[in-house]
Amino acid sequence: MLDQPTNERRLTIARAMAEAMQQEMQRDPRVFVMGEDIAGFGGIFGNTRGLFEKFGKERVRDTPISETGFISAAVGAAMDGMRPVVELMFVDFFGVCFDAIYNQMAKNAYFSGGNASVPMVLMTSTGGGYSDAGQHSQCLYGTFAHLPGMKVVSPSNAYDAKGLMTAAIRDDNPVVYMYHKQLQGMGWLGTEPGATLNTPQEGYTVEIGKAKVVRAGSDVTLVGLAMGVHNALKAADKLAEEGVNAEVIDLVSLVPLDRETVINSVAKTGRLIVIDEDYHSYGVSGEIIATVTEHDVSKLKASPARVTFPDVPIPYAKHMEQFCLPNPDKIIAAYRKM
């Protein structure tokens, strides 16, 4: 990745998201963006930069700090034929507005027997690692993916970030677009270099519901999403030094979940480690392991393992938070125990 040709456009996830929204807004007058500080400020995490200057305040709207109000308004606008992209600044804030999300956004298509649709994107930041404590650092992937009626995606790099945003806006269903703060490319949050990738200028989509094998291997399957993919890739590099060939899967999408790609990989490697920055219990890691064991437990050469956030609120102190977060060393340790 360090040897990319100089004519490539290396974008951060933040810029890739903004570019996708800009192109879709140009292409489709029904698309508009609203949320807190997303207009002139360009989004706390940079993902709406430039939109306000280009499209003005009618289509790029700062909202009051009223998540219930503006997210349920997005539902109403979507049902009236618009394609809102609405931002929940931190996923942790879902607690003040979840009815709009899981009882309205996610259920109205079903309650209409498919006669009505709610084509909206709810983009929201996830993840910690920068000592923002327990109300601004959660991932909550499992919480959203658990509830039926909304697609859930989370990109690990800028290429996917742009293609997923384009696909999400064009999707006729509600899509929860979860972007990890430490992958955004905002220097002040710390930046994962592997997330900044060559990103084509022209619009394109990345399929929602399709996982990617981002590193091929034969000895163990490492499954993750967002930051988990980067931890898995780093672990895979270290394992390779010992002659262990790890396959890394980027789930990309939680709903729909590409179970087949995971099953096929484990059929080959016989070993499974799931990396998830969300809480340990009742979440994505358990779902992935269940997927594999339900399908054919005989393919496993060892008990599956998971490297996750323990079931505690995210602590503030740096050493305590880092102690809890998944990292490459924990993945390697999990492999060694197999």
């Binding site: 289509r59 503006f70 349920s72 539902v75 109403g76 606008a77 009236d80």
Partner: peptide, 14 residues
Amino acid sequence: CGPACGAALSRTIQ
């Protein structure tokens, strides 16, 4: 209440 605001906003924008 919220969805009514959104539908009204939709008509305004369009």
